[in-house]
């Protein structure tokens, strides 16, 4: 039993009972929203194909392994799994690229391994930071973003550390 297992059923329960009380058209709403969900998923296909293919190539060529080996003295010192470095680097820049790398990690290590769990927490607790900053400030023509990028990236770094620490505490050290 895990608190995480309660999250989805509780949210569904809450939403359905609230809507029943309010007497809104539940099924009609569902169908409308679901249709949009399909459209969104389909719209990410091109970038997903592009990036997953590139990551698969990177893996097959041995380049990912070379990078991991190269960086492992530093990550060993920090007790951060070297396999997760490409994910940590790409996540602030591109959503599809990090999904591609994440998918590769799940495939090679399994979702229930320590690396798989930490990778999941990293993906779920960090955002495509630099991309978001560009979109938000670009929309209103702000050029001097002051300390935004620094703060956001420092917060991301804390999320990385917290991902490793929380997974090791909750699921036990290897």
């Amino acid at each position: 039993m895990n608190i995480g297992s309660w999250a989805v059923p509780s949210v569904i329960f809450l939403i359905l009972s609230f809507s029943l009380l309010k007497k809104t058209d539940i099924f009609e709403s569902f169908v409308g929203g679901a249709e949009k969900g399909i459209a969104t998923t389909v719209s990410i296909i091109p970038s997903l194909v592009a990036l997953i293919t590139a990551v698969t190539m990177l893996k097959a060529s041995g380049a990912l392994e070379i990078l991991t080996n190269f960086i492992s003295p530093l990550t060993n010192f920090l007790k951060f799994p070297a396999e997760l470095v490409p994910l940590a680097v790409l996540k602030p820049i591109s959503g599809s690229a990090s999904i591609a790398v994440f998918d590769n990690i799940l495939k090679s290590h399994g979702p229930d391994s320590e690396i798989g769990r930490i990778a999941s927490v990293i993906v779920g607790s960090t955002e495509t930071t630099l991309y978001t900053i560009a979109i938000y400030f670009g929309s209103v023509g702000i050029k001097n973003i002051r300390h935004t990028a620094t703060v956001a990236l420092v917060a991301d770094a804390f999320a990385l550390v917290a991902s490793v620490v929380t997974v090791r505490i909750i699921f036990g050290c290897p």
């Binding site: 895990n2 994440f102 979702p111 229930d112 999941s120 927490v121 779920g124 607790s125 999320a159 991902s163």
Partner: peptide
């Protein structure tokens, strides 16, 4: 995605994820 690779409990990472966020 986790379920796609046969995770025994795809949602088990949620508490860790919430804390990290």
């Amino acid at each position: 995605l986790r379920k796609n690779y046969n995770s025994s409990n795809p949602f088990e990472i949620l508490p860790a994820l919430w804390l990290s966020s």
